[in-house]
Structures are given as C-alpha cells and as structure tokens.
C-alpha cells in the first residue's frame, strides 16, 4: 500500500491515545526534576559545543580514513603539507577527549526528558525519540571505543577502525536529525541571555 503524502503526514501527527495516568509514577511524576540546570538554556549551549566538537571529529576522522584507505580517485590526498595529518589527527583525538565531559553533562541535563509524559504524543514524536537512541548509543560508542584505542586498551573483539568509521555516519546522521528537530527550541534558548 502506498500512501499519498497528506495521509502519511496526518498519520504521523495524529495524537496517540494517552496512557492511563495511574502509570505516571516514580520519575514520570510531574515536577519530579526541579533543578534549573535541566533546562533548554543549558542543553542548547552544551549542544552547540558538542555540535562543533563532533563536527570536527567527523571531518578529521574522514580525512584519516581516506588517507589510510586512499581511493585511487582522490589524488588531492597529497603528501603536503608534511605535518597536516599530525595536526588533524591530534585535533581529532583532542576534540574527542574534550567531548567526553561535554556529553556527560549534556546527558545529565536532558535525562529528565527520558521520563516525558506521555512517552509518545504521536507517531512522529515516537520516531524522533527513537532516533535519540541512535544518537546517544552512537555517541557513547564512539567516545568509549576512541578512548580505549587512545590508551591502547584493545579489549573489544571487533576491529576498531571499521566499527568507529561506520558508527560515525550513524552518529552524525542522528545528530543532524536531532539538530533539525531541536533547532527552534535551541535558537530561542540561545537568544535568552
């Protein structure tokens, strides 16, 4: 069955039935998280920094990947400047390491949203929240495996480089979706001094 676009949109945005409020317990309770640090103001600022560090990590990582698996169609991957790779890879590892406290703080700032009520307002809301799983899992995987590799702790059974390379696409893709869905809220929060 192929749905025409208007029908699809209405299905995606149709409100889902509300779960019984008796289920709204524990962390789901209203007002459960009262710290002002759990705010869009903080999240947007940390998010902006993470956007920059992840962007730098992604681009320098791609450069490293293509230097190591040099495609024959890329003669622009040249031997000059002599120390370019030294710079880009130092930057890659430094921004990756700096991302660790930023990500931990960001996750702490927004984790009350995990207990949002109702858990899914509509199908599109559910899909958007699902994509956050990819973003959080991907980010955690990249930073943890990257850190392990930097300190020479090769405890995982898989090969680091392909796993780190392919997960980068998943993570950056999920990050772009996240930026797209949060752009309005983030802009407003950033304009608030």
């Amino acid at each position: 069955m192929v749905l025409d676009p208007p029908t699809m949109t209405s299905i995606l945005h149709r409100p889902l039935p509300k779960p019984p409020s008796a289920l709204r317990r524990g962390p789901f309770r209203e007002g459960r998280f009262s710290s002002p640090l759990h705010s869009a103001w903080v999240a947007a600022r940390l998010g902006r920094m993470l956007g920059i560090t992840f962007g730098v990590c992604f681009l320098t990582g791609l450069y490293s990947h293509f230097l190591q698996h040099q495609p024959h169609w890329a003669p622009w991957l040249t031997s000059r400047p002599v120390g370019l790779y030294r710079f880009t890879q130092g930057l890659h590892v430094a921004t990756g390491l700096a991302s660790i406290p930023l990500l931990l703080a960001k996750l702490w700032t927004v984790y009350p949203k995990l207990w949002e009520w109702p858990p899914a307002r509509s199908l599109s809301h559910a899909v958007e929240r699902g994509s956050l799983f990819l973003l959080v899992a991907g980010s955690g995987f990249q930073l943890v495996t990257g850190l392990m590799n930097v300190v020479g702790w090769y405890a995982f059974k898989f090969f680091f480089t392909p796993a780190h390379y392919w997960t980068a696409y998943i993570t950056i893709g999920a990050m772009l979706i996240h930026i797209g869905t949060k752009l309005t809220v983030a802009r407003q929060a950033l304009s608030d001094e």
Partner: peptide
Amino acid sequence: PIACVEGWS
C-alpha cells in the same frame, strides 16, 4: 613526524 592514529606524534 610519526603521527599515530591514536593521537600522539
């Protein structure tokens, strides 16, 4: 330079 993928050089 020797520039390692692990970040040292």
